[in-house]
Design a protein around this nucleic acid. Structure first.
Lengths: 327, 327
DNA sequence: CTAGGTGCAAATAATTTGCAGAGGC
DNA sequence: GCCTCTGCAAATTATTTGCACCTAG
């Protein structure tokens, strides 16, 4: 649920620390706010409710929240820090408007992957990465007000993750349907048919969930992209389906399926873990498991096929060495 | 030349402003330094030569240098700014060690492209981007001293750009050689042969230049990657050459050549502009022009081919619509 | 009762500014 | 001589700390 915020507060609090009205008050005001607050912003907000709160206490509470994992300190190069809720996407990046000083969040799996790669190449153990794009936002450039709010990041994350998942399942459905048609081996064909059916079920469930999300925020669909993930935008099986269309043999088809399914399993696992929305999370993690079992199924079939081919002495004709492939 | 620094100083200075020994002195000390200095570091350094310089003057001069485009202010989230020479790669990113507080630079065309894409998708006019990877560097993690220095960024940039260029020309050579063999049309074959020869010449020149660089810094080859550019790491023609190997007709071969050559031209142009090393820059820009004329040649040939095919009524058999393709 | 929370005021730390004097053109 | 640069000290800004007091457990 999106409204984890206030209820789960107790859970967020570290064991150490005394119950105190002031701290409680500051934390509550902070959590009620959207966006990125400076210590000063927070002081002003608190003083509206109770002007006998000292600036020092706010600073101390802010520090406490950071330690407790409730808040994250971010530096937009203004010469002071801002604070954001940290139950949000743990790893997100910012677009920062130099004119209105607002900042907008985004996520990019593509950039994350490249960052990891660079760190790896330099033998650097990365613990955190900051990506900030400075410039001018649309509103400041054109003058007119565009999409008033940008919506909650958790909803946007769910929307984009679901879109990718739907594209993946759709391409998976296409892939398996096509594979079922072209596979000559009866056993393999059956497997592909079953998998196609499974992907179809997944697809329906995801589309259902997507509709539910839209009901929560009618403008959700029109809001700008939050999560960028090029590699999967058209579905993780899209490329595989294409290759299939260009004609492959049974073994290659299995091989492609294995590779796609592995990607798909990873995708659902990784994104499932990042979901704020517990229902979405559950669906994703469940699918991750199922994709994993599809994967196992395909791998078993691949091995069986190779074995049979080996017996018929045709094992050397196609594909890469099975040992590596089926690992 | 790498030693642009001191000579071209006059050029860097903005017209306004008086000639003053203090400022001169501060600027000189700053430019002699490597790495990222804080205002305080600079004060200390200056005081070694002349301890009657006020902190305020250093701050003022630093600000002046930033305005003049000599220095760039960078924020590593330490609560104070650092300054780096700005004749360096205008757009580079940082790996920042949380233990030793040193920072290492890198460039990533891949990340740059993604950043541009995100900004575009959000209707954001990006003027600058910051990418900082925080973590622990190899030395701090393992204890032992590794590659003492990381070398000058301009040399590293030149090295990596040349490596990519060499890979590109090498793959180009392979592509054209192969294309020359498989093309049935005599005219087309001749063109591919000529282009293969040209790429061969380019390749030699680049390898020569690469050797010259190595002579300047014997350890250059062993230093870590500075410039990350996945898309081109194996040569811009590599994929094309592969597709060729899988068998295509004359028209498709031309088409692939056009696409690769376009990428190649863009690559040489873009990186040529970023070269600090004027000799490398010249080679790259010269090649950019030549690749451009290769491109034109291929496009003309493609059009001619399509026209001939149109006359023979076979135009509809292969490939995508020529109008779009040959734009 | 006592550890930890709180307010206030003073301390820091980085950077900027006002002002009077110095120096180049 | 004028205008800008410079040094010094004081101001500013964001944040932290010392200390005495207060309050929940």
């Amino acid at each position: 649920m999106t409204t984890t915020t206030l209820q789960d507060l107790s859970r967020l609090k570290p064991s150490g620390g005394k119950r105190s009205s002031k701290r409680e008050q500051i934390v509550n005001v902070f959590l009620r706010q959207e966006g990125h607050l400076s210590a000063d912003d927070l002081v002003d907000l608190i003083r509206k409710e109770d002007h006998r709160i000292s600036r020092a206490t706010v600073y101390r509470t802010l520090q406490w929240m950071v330690d407790a994992g409730i808040a994250r300190k971010v530096d937009f190069g203004e010469g002071r820090f801002r604070f954001e809720h940290s139950y949000r996407q743990p790893r997100h990046y910012h677009l920062i408007c130099k004119t209105c000083h607002r900042s907008f969040e985004f996520l990019s799996s593509d950039i994350e992957a490249l960052v990891d790669e660079v760190a790896g190449a330099r033998n650097f153990t990365a613990s955190q990465s900051v990506v900030q794009i400075y410039g001018t936002c649309e509103e400041c450039r054109t003058g007119r007000t565009t999409t008033q709010e940008h919506g909650h990041t958790d909803l946007l994350f769910a929307r984009d993750a679901l879109r990718i998942a739907i594209a993946t399942e759709r391409s998976g459905l296409e892939f398996y349907t096509r594979a079922a048609k072209t596979t000559r081996d009866a056993r393999g064909r059956k497997i592909f048919q079953d998998l196609a059916h499974e992907e179809g079920t997944h697809l329906e469930k995801l589309e259902q969930r997507y509709k539910e999300l839209l009901a929560r925020d009618p403008q959700l669909e029109s809001r700008p992209t939050f999560l960028f993930f090029k590699g999967a935008a058209h579905g993780l099986f899209a490329e595989g389906a294409e290759r299939l269309a260009r004609g492959v043999d049974d073994q290659q088809a299995l091989m492609i399926g294995i590779r796609c399914e592995r990607g798909s399993h990873r995708f659902f696992k990784k994104y499932g873990e990042r979901f704020e929305d517990s229902e979405g999370k559950q669906i994703f993690l469940e699918f991750a498991d199922e994709e994993r079992s599809h994967l196992d199924l395909l791998v078993r079939e691949y091995r069986a096929l190779v074995k049979r081919q080996g017996r018929t002495r045709r094992s050397l004709r196609h594909g890469p060495p099975p040992a590596r492939a089926a690992r």
